[in-house]
Nucleic acid binder design. Structure first.
Length: 265
DNA sequence: CGATTATGATTAA
DNA sequence: TAATCCTAATCGC
């Protein structure tokens, strides 16, 4: 589940449940035992998302860095907490709810300097206020790499992942293999605006939905899974706009999907 | 019960 | 480019 919208939504939900409260911390699985012991009982100052990176800062200045990677999950539960099942790296409990972290790419204590180093490596995060498209546009204009690769590069734009990149290329009418520096004028700005709009919507819904409800023939309720996306994982299926079979290929070591008619090379 | 898969990213070769 | 890490769900036999 984890693209930038997931992490920002998580930060918001963790703040609602835990911010300003002493947090009971443990590592049922044991792999974060020392870290959990150090923060156990400390009030959470705040949870913060930068792209796909999550930081939990405690009043004692301990900072827990979490990166969910491909398979990590942070699941909420009511209290009292259910018996720990599976490989729970970190379990947190506030006054009214608890959270279990499994399968993270990273879960470790970091210093303020290490946090800054991580954050400073990132490109602009369309979900953070105060960020602007200029550095993204400038990097795109200078890069001969495929735009599908540029969109996945966290140092260029933070928070976009494999689903959004294919969807944004479709919405912008751009083939993901197009060299970023050969995009038509204004296209990189369109891609940025798409990222702002859709990641925000992703936070709101806590899932990725790039199609309009009315386009699917709905005015209310949630769009069924099969109808949420234009091209992602739709190899050989008809394009939602023109009916042409969707194609797939490798871009930056990940699978990308596109409509050969709506997104000519 | 084993193989496969996943919205990620780093390290080694 | 390939190997590696992390976990759980799903699918085929």
């Amino acid at each position: 589940m984890p693209e930038g919208h997931t992490i920002h939504r998580l930060a918001r939900d963790l703040n609602r449940d835990l911010k300003g409260h002493p947090v009971q911390a443990s590592s049922p699985q044991g792999r974060f035992r020392d870290g959990a012991r150090l923060i156990d009982g400390q009030p959470l100052e705040r949870a913060e998302a930068w792209g796909k990176n999550l930081f939990l800062t405690f009043d004692t200045n301990e900072i827990v860095y979490v990166h969910l990677g491909l398979i990590g999950k942070f699941r909420r539960h009511a209290l009292p907490a259910p018996a720990a099942r599976g490989a729970i790296r970190l379990r947190l409990a506030g006054p009214e709810a608890g959270w279990d972290l499994t399968g993270p790419n990273a879960c470790k204590l970091v210093t303020r300097a290490e946090k800054l180093r991580t954050v400073n490596k990132l490109g602009p995060d369309p979900l953070r206020r105060g960020t602007t498209p200029e550095t993204f546009e400038a990097k795109a204009a200078r890069s001969s790499r495929p735009i599908g690769a540029v969109l996945l590069d966290q140092a260029t734009i933070a928070g976009v992942g494999n689903v959004y990149r294919s969807e944004f290329c479709f919405l912008a009418g751009v083939h993901p293999m197009t060299a970023a520096n050969e995009l038509a004028d204004g296209t990189s700005r369109i891609l940025w605006d798409l990222s702002v709009e859709h990641l925000k919507e992703g936070v709101r819904l806590n899932r990725i939905v790039t199609r309009e409800p009315k386009e699917v023939g709905m005015t209310r309720g949630r769009i069924p899974p099969r109808h949420r996306l234009y091209v992602y994982k739709r190899h050989h299926q008809p394009c939602h706009r023109c009916g042409t079979p969707i194609e797939q290929g490798e871009v930056a070591a990940r699978t990308a999907w596109w409509c050969p008619r709506c997104q000519p090379r």
